[in-house]
């Protein structure tokens, strides 16, 4: 237990130092570079942001918009997993499937998700469906590529062991491929979920209404710096929580045998 408290306290200290620096910068007008009154506008004091945070939470405005973005991310990411994971596995198992699909993946993967915004709005209108489409496009390729890499790295002698025991194709997938690729898939999911959030915020900022990105752009348009800072803090907290909830569970399940790597 002692070993866990120390890093936690050190982390808290780093955050406290950052908040201290922030307060100092705000108070001194970004270290004397400008009039303190203007500085209040560009970088409000931490307690001002805190109060505003509380107000936004109380009114439900922040939470409802977080929920809108979260729903888009979860649905979009879920669809990307449902498409990407089996596709990656099939590509790893069959050279023919790989030859057909891999050029497409290579072509589409460097295209940033945001680039799909205009088309998505044209095709799906201004709403959830457009956002979900963009998220799928943005998070699909890391999921496919990591699952594929996982299958290609399966210890080939395990296939021999299964074949001599006369396992059929599904049994090979179930007993060997799926458990082997878990570490790869987890990192693919991590990347994919990160992309999904980035893309949804960008999409909401440039057009898709509601959501956290929308709050951010409203904050910018109304010169309300507190709101933009609050959005950034919320995003950080959400990402950390998602990491804990989704990936900690998966990794704990595999930790029993993971030391072998």
């Amino acid at each position: 237990m002692k070993g866990k408290i120390k890093p936690f306290l050190q982390g808290c200290l780093a955050i406290a130092a950052l908040v201290g620096l922030w307060a100092l910068a705000s108070k001194t007008g970004i270290f004397g570079k400008m009039d303190p009154e203007d500085a209040e506008l560009l970088l409000p004091m931490p307690q001002v942001v805190c109060e505003e945070f509380w107000e936004l939470l109380k009114s439900g405005y922040l939470l409802s918009n977080i929920w809108v973005s979260m729903k888009r991310v979860l649905v979009g990411f879920g669809i990307a997993v449902l498409i990407g994971l089996p596709l990656g596995i099939f590509m790893g198992m069959s050279v023919t499937v790989r030859n057909f699909i891999y050029p497409l993946v290579r072509f589409f993967s460097p295209i940033p998700g945001v680039a799909w915004v205009p088309l998505a709005i044209l095709w799906f209108g201004l709403g959830d469906r457009a956002a979900i489409f963009i998220i799928v496009m943005g998070s699909l390729s890391p999921i496919i590529i990591n699952s594929l890499q996982g299958v290609l790295n399966v210890d080939r002698s395990l296939y021999d062991a299964l074949h001599m025991m006369e396992a059929n194709g599904w049994q090979v997938v179930y007993h060997c491929i799926v458990p082997s690729i878990v570490p790869y898939v987890i990192s693919g999911f991590r990347l994919g979920l990160g992309f999904a959030w980035r893309v949804v915020i960008a999409a909401e900022m440039v057009g898709v209404p509601k959501g956290l990105g929308y709050v951010l752009s409203v904050g910018r348009n109304t010169a309300n710096t507190s709101v933009t800072i609050i959005t950034i803090i919320s995003l950080g907290i959400i990402m950390m929580l998602m990491e804990e909830v989704l990936f900690r569970v998966l990794e704990n399940r595999t930790s029993k045998w993971k030391q072998w790597e």
């Binding site: 210890d155 002698s157 395990l158 021999d160 062991a161 074949h163 001599m164 025991m165 006369e166 007993h175 060997c176 458990p179 595999t254 029993k256 045998w257 072998w260």
Partner: peptide
């Protein structure tokens, strides 16, 4: 014609399933 459970191999590097 291929591998079969009438002929089982014991490998030098064991080839056990690490997650089992």
């Amino acid at each position: 014609e291929g591998p079969g459970k009438d002929r089982l191999m014991v490998f030098q590097d064991y080839v056990l399933f690490p997650w089992k």
